[in-house]
Nucleic acid binder design. Structure first.
Length: 706
RNA sequence: GAGCCUGUAGCUCAGUUGGCUAGAGCGUUUCGUUGACAUCGAAAAGGUCACUGGUUCAAGUCCAGUCAGGCUCACCA
């Protein structure tokens, strides 16, 4: 054995060996199943530390394999709709092109090829982490059989009235060219302004309205005051002119208005403000949109064709000239921005598909509350319930090409009314399902990525199965869903709702959440701060085990992980220590001389055995309780500071002369430690194991003695 | 505004159901070691466990409050 553990000489060799040997392969053995569906990474980018955190899954999977269970870690990748299209459009931009330069099919094919390339890169990067994924059964969210399942789910929902089409205000990004659900909106605090604008009354005089968005008054349908506001009682029922135009709007009263804010008089712009939309509906007031999906003004006859920001400047200037701009004050406010590109989102009215959440959420809440689905750590249980409680109807339509096209078809036969001309179909229809004519067209939109993701646990297992091999029955409900706490809302909550809807059982028994990776100072990593650590660099420099160890050592379940170079180096040293302990035992083990040893030694060996047995017990107890990180800390402490620093140092002479009893006792404890350590540091443990047992053996073929 | 979390050694963090002189990594000081490992070993310094009060034979650990910081959600035009 080398004097040092040379990780670079072992890691890729061992991974290839594992794959060839099939130790990651799950079979229908009938043994007790343990299944984790891997959160499918986006197939559009390189590995980052967020992915490395899935090491907790690898630990569970490898532990269960060693515990003799049939452990199945389902590999997959996500098409990541908007994310991917956004990345791809940036590529196009570099070539001076845009998505509008290509017909739909061509653009789709281009992105498909792009994704397939990236996907392979990503998968190879995951291999570097040592993940024991069953690659032979890997799935992709746009595999045809997965798509069919997504279609079926949509149809079921459609048939049960759980998806509906509605004209609503949606969060629309005029830069990305698509709408989003409320979860993809990022609120940003800004220093804005509150403009006081005088609206001329038809009967003479003016009424002053306070607004943060002066440019939108072209779309107003009313001015609204509080019914009890004495300042304005006389105006209610009268009419005012929209400035710069001759359009007249009524002055109405509604208790929604806060008398203390601004001037107590509010303009109502239904097509461009969520609250106003509701109010206008209540008062049955309507007007055209004055902002288009391209982010430009329309229907104003004053600033048409201008972008919103420019339009505001022009409008303010014109108001100023007419003496209608009464006052401008600073005003702290929050704007909704696109999580993807940061553009301020426009609320715009659009016909979209929505999922009715209430019926789904109430079932999901029951599953969590009754403990059918257990949450680790438990503090996230409350959070999950409150998330489900407050879930609003889910907009699943996206106006992008890269995604699963919504299998909704509209009959163009004019005899159908309203929404009754829509039908859903899993197979591509050749005639209208409503009236039997051939005149229909498919919705242009694609699904929100999370719509397919929410079906991932059952969609993967169902499509992996065939008539002879029923992995679905064997492994569903899956055992654990492990992911970052940041996607509890976007993913976990939805998987429970949709999973239960479609399979009438829970998608997983346990939810295990891990934290976010932070830098040495506890700060979030971000490109702008320049503190991003690339996991591939670390693996290159210190080895995968060092990275894995650093992510697990000294962290508690669900807590954020502080990653520093020091910690990584310390873990590299630990791997080396393990190697060298093995080396020392190995080199003396050969001598094996039966001989008497002093009573003192026997006592020490007995102590060692006691300590080791206690450690083993605690180790398995922690794993049972989903305390996945802690056993590693204990092993570190035991192996280094007890086993090496104390026991080996004390018994060193006897080992050197090759006392058989001592040597075999040390060897036994050491190998036991390797097994327990293997889920955490798979490479170094396997490398040593092979030094002892031969290059064709794997520690994963061993079993715990418990 | 609502909810959640955190506050332990110079720094970053562990500390399961309350129980022996409070731990780790890195850093600091001293010493050692050239046949397991310098990616090493021995030893040391360093903490009123944010503060206050309470429960208890016993509290870093439970309860209440205060202060400080963080995260998430919802927000008045």
């Amino acid at each position: 054995m080398d004097t040092k553990y040379q990780f670079s000489q072992h890691e890729s060799r061992l991974y290839t060996f594992w794959e060839k040997k099939g130790v990651f392969r799950a079979t229908l053995s009938g043994k007790e199943p343990f299944c984790i569906v891997f959160p499918p990474p986006n197939a559009n980018a390189d590995l980052h530390l967020g992915h490395a955190m899935y090491v907790f899954e690898d630990i569970m999977i490898r532990y269960k394999k060693l515990a003799g269970k049939e452990a199945f870690w389902v590999a997959g990748a996500d098409h990541a709709g908007i994310e991917t299209q956004y990345v791809f459009e940036k590529h196009l931009k570099k070539q001076g092109k845009s998505r509008y330069d290509y017909p739909r099919e061509e653009l789709f094919t281009m992105i498909w090829d792009f994704v397939m390339q990236n996907r392979e890169t990503m998968e190879n990067q995951l291999r570097k982490l040592g993940f024991a994924l069953d690659w032979e059964k890997k799935k992709f969210t746009m595999d045809p059989d997965i798509v069919t399942i997504v279609y079926k789910t949509f149809k079921h929902m459609f048939d049960k009235g759980l998806v509906y089409r509605a004209n609503r205000l949606v969060n629309y990004c005029t830069s990305c060219g698509t709408s989003f659900s409320d979860l993809e909106v990022v609120a940003k605090d800004i220093q804005g302004k509150l403009y006081h604008i005088a609206f001329p009354l038809v009967d003479g005089g003016t009424i002053t309205v306070a607004t943060t968005r002066p440019e939108t008054f072209f779309g107003d349908v009313a001015i609204m005051v509080h019914p009890k506001d004495k300042r304005y009682t006389q105006y209610v029922g009268k009419k005012a002119h929209i400035p710069l135009t001759d359009r007249e709007i009524p002055i109405i009263a509604d208790a929604y208005v806060d008398m203390k804010f601004g001037t107590g008089a509010v303009k109502v712009t239904p097509n461009h403000d969520f609250n106003d939309f509701e109010i206008a509906k209540k008062h049955k007031l309507q007007y055209n949109s004055i902002i288009g999906f391209d982010g430009k003004m329309q229907n104003t006859h004053v600033v048409d064709g201008l972008r919103v920001k420019k339009a505001r400047e022009v409008v303010l200037q014109k108001l100023e000239e007419k003496g209608l701009l009464v006052k401008v004050e600073d005003h702290d406010m929050t704007v909704r921005t696109c999580y993807r590109c940061g553009t301020v989102l426009e609320p715009l009215p659009k016909k979209q598909w929505f999922v009715s959440i209430k019926p789904l959420a109430s079932k999901a809440i029951a599953l969590v509350e009754t403990g059918k689905i257990k949450i680790h750590p438990s503090r996230f249980k409350k959070q999950l319930i409150s998330i489900l409680d407050n879930f609003i109807d889910w907009n699943i339509s996206r106006q992008i090409v890269w995604g699963i096209r919504i299998p909704a078809y509209r009959c163009v036969n004019k005899s159908h009314k309203g929404n009754e001309n829509w039908f859903a179909s899993v197979e591509k229809p050749n005639k209208c399902a409503i009236c039997g004519t051939c005149a229909f067209e498919q919705d242009e939109d694609t699904f929100d990525t999370w719509f397919s993701s929410s079906q991932w646990p059952f969609a993967t297992l169902q499509t992996i199965s065939d008539t002879e091999n029923d992995y679905f029955s064997a492994f569903y409900p899956t055992t654990v869903m492990e992911t970052g706490y940041d996607i509890l809302r976007a993913w976990v909550a939805r998987m429970i709702m949709v999973g239960y809807f479609e399979t009438e059982t829970i998608p997983f028994q346990h939810v295990y959440l891990h934290g976010m990776v932070r830098d040495a100072k506890g700060q979030k990593m971000s490109k702008s701060k320049g503190n991003v650590i690339n996991p591939l660099d670390i693996i290159e420099q210190f080895g995968a085990d060092a990275l894995r160890g650093a992510l697990v050592f000294g962290t508690k379940e669900g807590g954020d992980v502080v990653l520093s170079q020091d910690k990584i180096r310390a873990m590299r040293n630990f791997a080396n220590k393990i190697w060298n302990i093995g080396r020392f035992i190995q080199m003396n083990d050969d001598k094996r001389a039966p001989m008497q040893h002093p009573k003192q030694t026997q006592d020490i060996l007995a102590d060692l055995q006691d300590e080791f047995t206690a450690l083993e017990k605690q180790y398995h107890r922690d794993h049972k309780a989903y305390r996945v990180g802690k056993p590693f800390d204990m092993l570190y402490e035991f192996i280094w500071h007890r086993f090496a620093d104390y026991y080996i140092e004390t018994l060193k002479e006897e080992m050197r002369v090759g006392n058989a009893e001592t040597c075999s006792a040390m060897r036994r404890v050491y190998l036991g430690c390797l097994k327990m350590l293997h889920p955490y540091l798979p490479f170094v443990t396997e490398a040593v194991w092979q030094e002892y047992h031969g290059k064709e053996t794997s520690i994963l073929q061993e079993r715990f003695m418990c």
